[in-house]
Design a binder for these strands. Sequence first.
DNA 1: ATAGATACTTGAGTCCATCAAGCAATCGTT
DNA 2: AACGATTGCTTGATGGACTCAAGTATCTAT
Lengths: 140, 140
Amino acid sequence: MALPNGPVTASSEAEAVLFDLVDVYDRAYEAAAAELSLSPAQACLLGRLDERRGMSALAEELGCDASNITQIVARLEALGLVTREPNPRDRRVRLVTRTPQGDEINHRFAAAFTFARTAVERLSPDEQNQLTALLRKALS
Amino acid sequence: MALPNGPVTASSEAEAVLFDLVDVYDRAYEAAAAELSLSPAQACLLGRLDERRGMSALAEELGCDASNITQIVARLEALGLVTREPNPRDRRVRLVTRTPQGDEINHRFAAAFTFARTAVERLSPDEQNQLTALLRKALS
DNA sequence: ATAGATACTTGAGTCCATCAAGCAATCGTT
DNA sequence: AACGATTGCTTGATGGACTCAAGTATCTAT
């Protein structure tokens, strides 16, 4: 389990609840990945492959170094969840695609990561809209 | 930068905003730590030392293995931010304490991690209460 | 006094992450 | 068409976080 990203001292109740949320969310994500023997990074990457993508596109999207993607994709490939095919239109690019097995695992991961969904579902539709509006404002 | 913990597909707008929040929060935490040349785990641990604690207390509080704490504390000690003193009442225990320098760094980290604070401050007091209530309900 | 629990460390192994260096393919310019 | 620069990716090295298994020292309970 990754250590939580807690504030040193919360300056308000809202801030404390925010921290709780982030912590529980991250742990739930990690736990869901672990159920399928994936690391969070692997689960994340697998989830971004609804369309095939080049490695640098993934690196940019995920905000990390390309060589990091190389490693993670290599492990996913070794697990049979992903393939790397050359792009005929630009032979520098290697297109990453989920295998059928990768689709299956990705689907099961989506089912296992219930946290965000069930949290939202504890709220009425009205409350969901309020929450969305408040968070959007807080994030702006 | 750690890869984000995004849901495979968001089932609602609220869920998508939740994910955004977590992602931005985590990145801000990491960036604040990086400003002080700390890893997120180091910043987190340093923040838990307002009172001195034994290693296993820290491990339990943070939800990880004791040997992980040993390592992180060793690095913080090498940086001069923390000391390990034997507990005279139980010589198995090694009490971890922030040094004055550790206090200073911890204080600067708290100042650097503005994300949660400023996000909350974009809301009126009323809205802050609403948000707190909604998140509490969602987390229950 | 001894057996068992507790606190911590060490060592080995995996993964994530970053940086520097390198190769191959493409692009832009002339 | 050819050259240099850029782009896409990989490799190798390094470091931190994390886990597990094994080990030592101390404490507790009987």
